[in-house]
Design a protein around this nucleic acid. Structure first.
Length: 551
DNA sequence: GTAGGGTTAG
């Protein structure tokens, strides 16, 4: 028996497992050593050589599967590409008998998180209470985490508030949940409450959530404090923490600091470290440095993956290194990395910005996968920039075919016509917008001053301080004109007078927000852009990351 | 002995 177990441990392939399995079957040991059989199923369902279907075949051969054997399958399915299957198995299991234990619930909940199955998570939640597992700290933390991941932060918060006992992981789960759910301010507040009020020491997982929140807020000061704490507590021995610090500095606009951390890391760099740093240089327009690092990473023995290529392409795009970008893109296949829709998107943008519209179109045309809306929008945007009517019409046609209801697409096309003073065509687009019931959703400009969020629309005069804001903008306009700025009025939708067009541009909502920020803060205070994102966009991203299909 | 919290992306 012990001998067989050690043999099982040495199985490094499915073939070996099957060999052992046939031995168990022929010698009649299969049904008599349930723990060994469980190990066999676990090995098939969970290990890197995993073969779930084989685990399930094994499971079906059991006359009376034990809880552990059920759990092995549910757990395996939960981390597979079909997490919904784990939920079905859980349902079958809970109907069959009282075999479900806290672990089964835990695995099934994990599956809910990955499948974004909110109502299923609620059902399991109620069963947990009924089964009497409700006071289990580990299960409650899982529950909290699942609610946060499926997008219901209110429920997550409620579970957290009602916990009779919380440990560090419970705090970490909610902090990370808030940070990832675009509620960074609350994440930071909870982080402070945890360390200052509860006296709990943040660990390497806590700081990840807090750093992520800082980068969303552009709050370097908070980020720096956390960095100091990380150094003091030697949490920088974890690569993952260093990666988050680098990312935080980069997103707050301090590439140099990010690079300093990158250079002075005591622990080894991994693929994500390199990718984060390359992306940091890319975002700040230092294409040369980004490409240099890209070359260095391969030399240091880290093989670039799809994200590395994307970061490098992004660098070329932002730095206008068109030839480098095209060369890089063409070298991908040879290097064994197949471009995905984001790589295509970046190259189309790169070529489009350079005015090479025909090539950009050919790239889209040659794609082996379905070109999404963003690609055609990119081409449409480039066509607008270069005033290419034919290309703009073609891209618009595609967008309409794809059922685009975004007014932005129509406005872009209309702008192209307006630039050529083709007012009849502008009118036609406007008619089409009416027919399709495309409503022009007004854009908003937001700014937070002293914790209060102010919202502006174009030409807004509803703010109490609107006269001061307009005066500040006029002052700015005067000085930029002194530097040679000329308003680009040919993109304005309506065929109105020149002066009016200029006003439509001058009092744009984002400019109003920035001007308000300037008159409301002391000199030298950085003005940060407040990004308004929705939880759903984060969930969408998470799904894409995991390669899952929505329910 | 089996479980919970986690960094990169047009």
């Amino acid at each position: 028996m012990a001998n067989l177990e050690s043999l099982l441990q040495k199985c490094t392939s499915l073939a070996r497992i099957k060999q052992l399995q046939s031995h168990l079957l022929t010698s009649g040991k299969f049904q008599f050593y349930p723990s060994l059989t469980t190990k066999l199923i676990e090995l098939c369902a969970l290990s890197p050589i995993a073969d779930l279907s084989h685990a399930i075949t094994l499971f079906h051969q059991l006359r009376k599967p034990s809880t552990n054997q059920w759990n092995a399958v549910v757990r395996g399915l939960a981390q597979s590409l079909q997490p919904t299957q784990a939920i079905s198995w859980y349902k079958t299991m809970s109907k069959a008998s009282q075999k479900v234990d806290a672990l089964t619930c835990s695995f099934a909940l994990k599956a809910c998180a990955r499948a974004l199955a909110f109502s299923e998570a609620m059902q399991i939640h109620s069963q947990i209470v009924r089964f009497g597992f409700g006071v289990d700290v580990l299960l409650q933390t899982t529950l909290l985490d699942v609610y946060a991941k499926v997008g219901d932060l209110g429920f997550a918060q409620k579970v957290f508030d009602e916990m009779s006992e919380r440990d560090i992981a419970s705090w970490n789960a909610l902090i990370a949940g808030l940070a990832q759910g675009s509620r960074p301010t609350e994440a930071i507040a909870l982080f402070k409450r945890m360390s200052e009020e509860e006296g709990l020491k943040p660990n390497e997982v806590t700081v990840l959530g807090a750093l992520s929140a800082c980068s969303q807020l552009g709050g370097v000061k908070g980020g720096e404090k956390i960095h100091v704490y990380i150094m003091e507590e030697k949490l920088d021995m974890h690569v993952i923490v260093c990666n988050a610090v680098i990312d935080m500095y980069a997103k707050c606009g301090f590439v140099d600091k990010a690079y300093w951390v990158f250079k002075n890391m005591k622990c080894g760099k991994n693929l994500i470290t390199w990718n984060t740093m390359i992306m940091a240089f890319a975002m700040h327009g230092d294409g040369g440095k980004a490409l240099e690092l890209f070359g260095e990473m391969a030399k240091s023995g880290v093989c670039p993956d799809a994200v590395s290529y994307l970061a490098a392409l992004c660098a070329c795009n932002h730095a206008g290194l068109v030839e480098d970008g095209v060369r890089l893109f063409n070298s991908m296949e040879v290097q064994g990395v197949s471009p995905n829709v984001k790589h295509y998107g970046t190259v189309v943008d790169l070529l489009g910005r350079a005015g090479r519209l025909q090539e950009a179109y050919q790239i889209i045309d040659s794609m082996p996968m379905f070109a999404d809306v963003v690609l055609w929008q990119t081409l449409l945007g480039a066509s607008k920039t270069y005033g290419n009517v034919e290309m703009a019409e073609m891209a618009s046609r595609k967008l309409v075919e794809m059922g685009s209801k975004g007014c932005g697409d129509f406005v872009l096309l209309s702008n192209v016509y307006a630039a050529h003073e083709r007012w009849d065509d502008v009118g036609r687009v406007r008619e089409a917008m009416k027919r399709r019931d495309v409503k022009k959703i007004p854009g908003f400009g937001y700014i937070e001053v002293d914790g209060v969020i102010h919202k502006f629309v174009n030409g807004d005069q509803s703010h109490v301080k609107w006269r001061e804001i307009y005066a500040k903008l006029d002052e700015i306009m005067l000085s930029v004109k002194a530097y040679g700025y000329v308003a680009k009025t040919n993109n304005v939708l309506h065929d109105i007078g020149e002066e009016e067009k200029e006003n439509a541009l001058s009092y744009h909502c984002e400019k109003l927000a920035v001007a308000f920020g300037l008159i409301s803060t002391s000199e030298g205070t950085p003005i940060q852009r407040l990004l308004v994102t929705f939880i759903c966009s984060n969930i969408g991203r998470r799904m894409k990351l995991k390669g899952l299909k929505p329910l």
